[in-house]
Amino acid sequence: MPHGAQKLFGWFGGYGISGTGQFFADTLGMHPGWLFALLAGLVEFFAGAALALGLLTRLAALGVVVLMSVALSVHIPNGLFWTNGGIEYPLMWGLVALAFVIGGGGRYSLDSRLGLRI
């Protein structure tokens, strides 16, 4: 959620949608940058909240898997280790999210409490 708040709202030292969008476009070559910044921020913030609550768990986790797949393509030139900007961190989160896509939120999730079978 904090990374999404950085992208969407400029909180926690972030640059907001326009600043992040400019970085995505100018540095990463992702056009239109503002759209990719918005999409990444929405997934990070709202899917992060949904996963923390166990609400719409599989759908939220699928969004994270897709986002982390894109992040892997951005980080792969930097090698494995996160300390060098490598794939270690997005790979870990992508695999954790994939486990939630497969297994769901579990018996203590809001999905379970609300009887959602998503």
Rank of each mutant, 00 (worst) to 15 (best):
F12S: 11
G4Y: 01
G14K: 09
L38N: 03
F23N: 02
K7I: 09
A50V: 03
L114T: 09
L91F: 05
K7G: 07
I102P: 08
V66D: 11
I87K: 01
A5V: 06
A25M: 07
H75A: 12
E88P: 07
D26M: 05
T20E: 00
L59H: 12
D111C: 06
L67N: 05
H31M: 13
S18W: 05
L51V: 04
M92N: 01
L59W: 13
V43P: 13
L95S: 02
A37G: 07
S112H: 12
P90Y: 03
F46C: 08
G14Q: 10
G54T: 06
A5F: 11
L35D: 01
Q22E: 14
L55Y: 13
G85Q: 07
L39S: 15
L55I: 09
G115T: 12
V43R: 03
G13H: 07
H75E: 01
G106C: 05
V64G: 03
S73N: 09
L80R: 04
V64F: 06
F46G: 08
A49D: 04
L114Q: 13
R107I: 02
P2R: 07
P2N: 04
A47K: 02
G104Y: 02
L28Q: 12
L39N: 13
F23Y: 12
I87T: 11
L56F: 15
F23T: 05
L72K: 02
G103L: 02
G33V: 10
S73T: 12
F45V: 11
R58F: 05
A97K: 07
A99P: 00
M30W: 14
A5P: 05
G115R: 11
L91P: 13
L67A: 14
F9L: 15
L91E: 01
H31Y: 13
W34F: 13
A37Y: 11
F12D: 08
G115V: 10
S109N: 02
G86T: 11
L28E: 01
M1G: 12
F100M: 11
A71Q: 01
H3C: 08
G41N: 08
G13S: 06
A52N: 04
E88N: 11
S18F: 09
L8Y: 07
G48I: 00
L62W: 13
G21R: 08
S18N: 00
G85L: 13
L42K: 08
L38H: 04
G19M: 00
L55A: 14
F23R: 06
